[in-house]
């Protein structure tokens, strides 16, 4: 089992989170609301032009359409001034969570391996899907049961995860695939995979387990008012 990085970094103080706002981010306030109002975690926004991150334990790269998805999803956002400090934050072993467009940015920035292709159907898909928790030994998933089945919404046009065979084997061998699309029963198959992603991948971590990228939106499934609550344990894992 891997060390959980957060424990050695927060020195007994509560988690402090930062949400990076890019031009075109549109899930930033959802994440802010869930962190501040639902989980009671101190959180602040950081504009992408800011050169330095405030002192924090968790950086969230939220969903949206940074820079209008021009060129490729996440391709321009990775050059934002704040990303240099996000890389330093990640290299220091502190937590980084990229959701949807945030995941795409992490891939383009090289903080996680692989790339996104257009969805197999070519359609933008916005609906709740079923996910299977493949690894609950990460700082992001330790409050989930092993093999838990979650219902969390996706909303993307390019979530068709791709990497070469060696990279896929590396991800599998290091148990870095954290979430896979599945049936409600946990069964895997193309018919349960909304976008055609390789290995039914919905979320991956790095080997150090301090960076998580995922296409589904846990911030849209964290309070009973929104009917879905399966995402809440992800935030609770971080506290």
């Amino acid at each position: 089992m891997h060390e959980l990085p957060r424990q050695e970094l927060t020195k007994g103080e509560g988690l402090k989170a930062v949400i990076v706002v890019f031009p075109g981010s549109n899930c930033d306030t959802d994440c802010f609301h869930v962190l501040r109002d639902v989980l009671k975690i101190p959180v602040e926004f950081v504009w992408h032009k800011q050169g330095k991150l405030p002192q924090c334990d968790l950086v969230v790269l939220p969903g949206g359409f940074s820079y209008g998805d021009y060129l490729r999803t996440g391709a321009i956002a990775r050059f934002s001034p704040v990303m240099q400090d996000v890389k330093r934050h990640a290299e220091a072993g502190r937590l980084v969570l990229g959701i949807c467009n945030g995941f795409q940015i992490l891939l383009e920035a090289g903080l996680l391996p692989g790339a996104m292709l257009r969805n197999r159907s070519l359609s933008f898909i916005c609906k709740p899907v079923w996910l299977r928790v493949e690894n609950n030994q990460t700082p992001f998933t330790r409050k989930f049961q092993s093999g838990a089945i979650l219902q969390i919404p996706i909303a993307h046009g390019e979530g068709n995860y791709f990497c070469d065979n060696d990279t896929l084997k590396g991800l599998e061998d290091s148990q870095s695939i954290v979430f896979r699309y599945s049936a409600q029963t946990g069964e895997l198959g193309d018919e349960f995979n909304p976008n055609g992603s390789l290995g039914h991948i919905a979320g991956i971590t790095n080997a150090k387990r301090n960076i998580l990228g995922m296409m589904p939106h846990p911030e849209r499934a964290s309070e009973s008012l929104l009917a879905l609550t399966d995402g809440r344990a992800l935030w609770e894992s971080l506290v």
Binding site: L117, R118, N119, R120, S121, L122, N160, F162, D164, G196
Partner: peptide
Amino acid sequence: SLKKSVLDPQGKTV
């Protein structure tokens, strides 16, 4: 262009 080893969903549809 997409590498030969990469499936091209747009190309397939066209």
